[in-house]
Simulated scan of single mutants.
Amino acid sequence: MTDIKVFIVDDSAVVRQVLTGLVGELPGIRVIGAAPDPIFALKRMEVEWPDVIILDIEMPRMDGITFLKKLMQEHPTPVIICSTLTAKGAEVTMQAMSAGAVDIITKPTVNLKGFLQDSKTLLADAIKAASHARFRTLSTAAKQTLDVKPKLNADSVIAPSGLVPMSETTDRVVAIGTSTGGTQALEYILTRLPRSVPGIVIVQHMPEAFTAAFAQRLNSLSQINVKEAEQNDRVIPGLALIAPGGKHMLLRRSGAQYRVEIKDGPLVSRHRPSVDVLFRSTAQAAGKNALGIIMTGMGDDGARGLKELHDTGALTVAQDEASCVVYGMPKEAVKLGATDGEMPLSAIPELIIRAPNRARFLKG
C-alpha cells in the first residue's frame, strides 16, 4: 500500500512545523507539503495532489470555509479542520463540517506541541479515516484505527447486567451512535423530525467544546429541540440530547422517566463519549422499548453495545453501506449480528417517526 499523502494549510508557522513533524512520524502517512494560506497551497498542490488536507479556518487572503467550498465544488478532497478550542472556533468549525469537512483536530492556544503529541493516536485515526472518505450523499469520512493503546470496552464505565429484559411499554426512546460523517447525517435526520417523536439520545464522536456548538446549530435548524446533554436531563418526546465531548452519556430509568447520566471515565473503544456505553445503558434502562441506530463512522465503537440492545428484543438498525460516508461502525455491528437489518439514511427519519408503533420496516 502507498502512503497517505497529507498537505497542511495553516497561517501559523509553529502549527505547520509541529504538525509536519508529528504527522511525518506516523506509519503509512507522508506530508507532501505545507502552506500558510489556501492560495499558496493550491499552487503547491497542482504539482502533487494530496489524499488528505489539514486546514486551518482563519487565514489571510482566503479563509478556510471559502477554500473548503471551492475544493468541494472543483476537486472534492477529504479535509480535516484544525480548529482552536474556543467558542468562536467551535462555531466556525460547525460551518466547516456542514460544508463538507471530514473531521476535527483541536489545537489549544498554549502548549500546542504537548497537546498534539498526546493526541497522536487520534491524529493518526483521523487521517486514516479521512483517506477513505467517499463523497456520495454527504461529505465526511473514516475507517480503521491505529492500535497503539489498550482498547477498553464498556465494562470500564458500566458493568454488564444479567437482568431479565424489562417488559414492553409505550414509553419509547431512540438511541443513535455515529462518528465520522455523522455531523451531516444527523443534520439530515433531525431536521426532518416532527415534535411528536420519542426522546432521542445521541453519541457523536466529537472533541470537547464542539458538541455544544453542534447542538445549538441543529436546534436552530430543527422542529424538535436539540441540546448538549447535562446531568439528569430528562429524555422526553421532541427532544434530542447530544452527549458532551469528553464525557460518557448513559441512559437511566427512574420510575416512569428516562434521564441521562453524564460521567467521566476512561476511553472506551478509544472514545469518550462512547457509543458502546450509551447502547449498553439503553439496553439496561429501556430494553425492547428502545430503537437503536448505528450510523456512519470509523472503527467498531457501538457494535457490542448494539448487540446487547438487540438481544433485549429492541429493534436495532444499521445505516447501509451505500449511504454511509464510512461503512465502518455499521459494518462491524452487522458482522456481529447486532442488527435487524440495514437501511439508507433517507429512510431513518421515517423509522424514528414510527418508533412508537414498533413498525418492523425491515420485514416488509
Rank of each mutant, 00 (worst) to 15 (best):
A290L: 04
L315R: 06
Q223F: 12
T86H: 01
D300N: 13
T180W: 10
K88G: 07
S131A: 15
T178R: 01
R30S: 14
V31T: 09
I236P: 00
G297C: 07
L315M: 13
T106A: 14
L186Y: 04
A129S: 15
G89H: 03
G89Q: 02
D103K: 09
E58W: 01
L190S: 02
E208C: 03
Q223P: 00
I200A: 03
E342L: 09
D300S: 15
V325K: 04
K307M: 10
A318H: 02
K43C: 06
V157A: 05
V334S: 11
V173M: 01
P165C: 07
L250V: 08
L315C: 08
L345I: 00
D3T: 13
Y188D: 11
T316Q: 07
T20I: 08
T121S: 10
M329W: 07
T145H: 11
T106M: 09
L362P: 06
G299C: 06
N225H: 14
I352G: 01
F361K: 01
T191N: 06
E261D: 14
I200D: 00
I29V: 15
S269D: 07
G162F: 12
N111E: 14
A209V: 15
A34E: 14
P60K: 02
M206N: 06
G364F: 09
I65C: 00
I80S: 04
D11M: 04
P165S: 11
A13I: 13
V268D: 08
P160M: 11
D3C: 11
L116V: 03
G292R: 02
P150F: 07
A141E: 13
K149Q: 14
G297D: 05
F7G: 09
G238N: 08
S281Q: 10
K288C: 10
S281K: 06
G299N: 00
Q95M: 12
P165G: 09
A303K: 00
A322C: 00
V203W: 00
M298E: 04
K247W: 12
M97G: 06
D147A: 11
R172L: 01
D63Y: 01
G245Q: 02
I200N: 00
V23L: 14
G162M: 10
P38H: 09
M343Y: 09
P273H: 01
A90M: 06
S196F: 03
L146E: 12
P165H: 03
P78C: 10
L146G: 05
L218F: 03
D125W: 01
A212M: 13
W49P: 03
D63E: 03
L239T: 08
E25C: 10
Q117N: 00
S119R: 15
D276K: 02
T169Y: 08
V317M: 05
D340Y: 12
L116A: 05
A283P: 07
V277Y: 02
S323P: 06
T183G: 05
S196Q: 07
L193R: 06
V164A: 13
V277I: 05
D51F: 10
N153I: 07
P165I: 08
L163A: 15
V325L: 01
L218Q: 04
S161G: 10
K143V: 13
K69N: 13
